[in-house]
């Protein structure tokens, strides 16, 4: 077997080091080694977005990143979205809008939506639908998710 590689990263603001096999995905390491199971595996080939994390500020499917590629990277997972004792406005708006049913796609949606609002604080409905097309939800029909992101954008605007 190929020797394991030592990888140093920053995850959710803290230094995280781990050993991994080259074939292991970042998602696998996050979930099985670092026990950050909030990122979900829905398809393991980049089509559902349930495993979305931010890597150096960009949304990526962590199933399509090798863990060894994360050397030196800064990563934010769903576990790092809330601000200390407070939910992030996106999380709060998902709850208030009932934007989740089974909840399995929710972490990926919230992380992707954060990337969207970080870049585009006033997205139109079209923008939201387009930018979140890489995230599948099978329960909600997306209506309440779109509204939650719209509300979160408004809440964040009020905050700043």
């Amino acid at each position: 077997m190929v020797k394991k590689t030592h990888v140093s990263t920053t995850i959710n603001g803290e230094t995280a080091e781990f050993l991994c096999e080259p074939r292991q995905s970042l998602l696998e390491i996050l979930r099985d080694t670092l026990e950050l199971t909030g990122s979900k595996e829905g398809c393991n080939n980049g089509n559902c977005g349930a495993c979305t994390v931010l890597m150096d500020g960009l949304p990526v499917n962590s199933c399509l990143v090798l863990a060894v590629e994360a050397e030196g990277a800064t990563i934010t997972t769903i576990e790092g979205i809330a601000e200390q004792a407070h939910l992030h406005p996106l999380q709060q708006c998902f709850l208030e809008n009932a934007a989740l049913q089974c909840g399995i796609c929710t972490p990926g949606f919230i992380v992707a939506a954060k990337a969207l609002l970080d870049r585009n604080p006033k997205p139109t409905e079209h923008d939201i639908r387009f930018e979140l097309a890489g995230n599948l939800c099978r329960c909600t029909g997306y209506d309440k998710i779109v509204r939650a992101v719209q509300d979160a954008a408004a809440a964040l605007e009020g905050k700043h």
Binding site: G46, P59, V60, N61, A112, G134, N135
Partner: peptide
């Protein structure tokens, strides 16, 4: 090409 997550990579 794919969604935003794909285009990041």
């Amino acid at each position: 090409i794919g969604g935003w997550q794909i285009q990041s990579r």
